[in-house]
Structures are given as C-alpha cells and as structure tokens.
Design a protein around this nucleic acid. Structure first.
Lengths: 109, 109
DNA sequence: CGGGATCCCTTGAGATACTG
DNA sequence: CAGTATCTCAAGGGATCCCG
C-alpha cells in the first residue's frame, strides 16, 4: 500500500504528472464547453498533429480525466467528454485563467 | 500589442508554460512555508541535481514567481521566497492538492 | 473520420567536475 | 555554499504515410 503511493507521494506532484504534456491543459479547457469530436478538437488546437492529439487524449483518458465514446458508423465518429473527475478539475482551470490574466504584466524575456 | 499576446494567447496556456518543468510546482509548494535557501530546497527535493535546481529556480524567477536574494558573505548565502505573484498562486496549488487527494482512487496503470 | 505506425529531431533532465 | 559548464541520454513532440 505504501509502496504504491511512493511514485505519487506528493498530491501536487500527482497533478503535475497528469497535466504535464504540451496540450493537455488546453484540451481540458476546450472540453469545458462540452463534448467534442476528434476533428473539432484538432481544429481548436492550432497546429497539433493527429498522432500527438491521440496520445494526449489517451493519457488523459487513462488518468481518468475524460471519456472516449466510439460510434461505429461509417465514417466512424468519436466523442470526448470530461468525466466527473475531469469536471471537478474545471475550477482549477478557471482559477489558473483568472490568475494568469491578473499577472499579464510579467514577461519571460 | 496583439503581436505580443500571440505567444501566450490563451491565459491557461501561459500558466502551463510557467509551471512546466519537472520540479517547479514542487518548488513553489515548498516555498509556501516561507523563505528557503538553495541547500535546504535541494534537501527538500529528493534527488534533484544542483544544475537542474538552478535552472528551474531561474525560470521561476524570470516568470516573476519568486525572488532571489543574495547575501555576499563567506560562505555565500542565497534565499528564495515567493513574490506577490507567486503568493497569489498558492490557492491554486492548494486546490490542486485537495483535488488530487479526492481522486487518489484513479490510477495510471 | 479517427486514428496507428514509424521515423526524426528538439527539449529537457540528470551526472559530474570545477569555481568564486 | 551556491552555483557554472559541459556532456550524455531518454522522453516527448512533430511530420508523414497508411488503414479500417
């Protein structure tokens, strides 16, 4: 039991692991509006390739943040939506956005 | 004006840029307790090398999250503390920790 | 349409040795 | 004590092609 937790000992580190990935936060942000299809997500993310988008979605799914629903039609349709866990993370995203806009004056260079 | 913002168009992306880095969130988390010296931070972070710690601290400083104060003594002493911007980010860290602990049941494998 | 597979290439982490 | 400089290495991003 204590061996399992050693990888993710610190709660805050666990979050960092989940959202680490160039597009993940942005993906969650866009799913805030509701269900999105693969193609629509790709259109919302400027310049992401399908391979990368697939990987980030899979990882978010494995971390329990979103749900993948496949419609076996021709052509195929796949919808992504937030799970309850993902939904409960939204306030944090909102807080991030609010915080960020209050500190736009800072610059990295 | 609009050209400047294009790099960090989305507020949430800006946050992602700032906290991207294996140790950054953890560093902020430990500075929550108050001022820390370089060595004490290194001791708080299990297995980080001095080179990495230096780089993450420098980036956080450039992003306006923390303050670096040098005491020109022998031997030298350097103290790190959160800026107002960094302090205002703490509630988000707390929210992350709380959220994380409410969803410990999810696993990545 | 929504991927999977593959390859390349950049980024960043980590180790080690050295310095004011 | 708190770095700097340099190197190596693994991970992750990105492009392209192909497929059910």
């Amino acid at each position: 039991m204590n061996l399992i937790e050693q990888r993710t000992a610190c709660p805050v580190t666990r979050v960092q692991t989940i959202i680490s990935g160039k597009w993940k936060i942005l993906i969650l942000w866009h799913l805030k509006q509701g269900t999105q299809r693969f193609g629509s997500l790709q259109r919302l993310l400027p310049g992401i390739s399908n391979g990368i988008l697939t990987r980030q979605l899979r990882e978010l799914e494995q971390d329990g943040m979103l749900l993948r629903k496949v419609y076996r039609e021709i052509p195929i349709k796949v919808e992504y939506s937030l799970t309850d866990t993902g939904l409960s993370f939204l306030p944090i995203l909102d807080a991030m956005a609010t915080w960020s806009m209050s500190h736009m004056s800072e610059s990295k260079q």
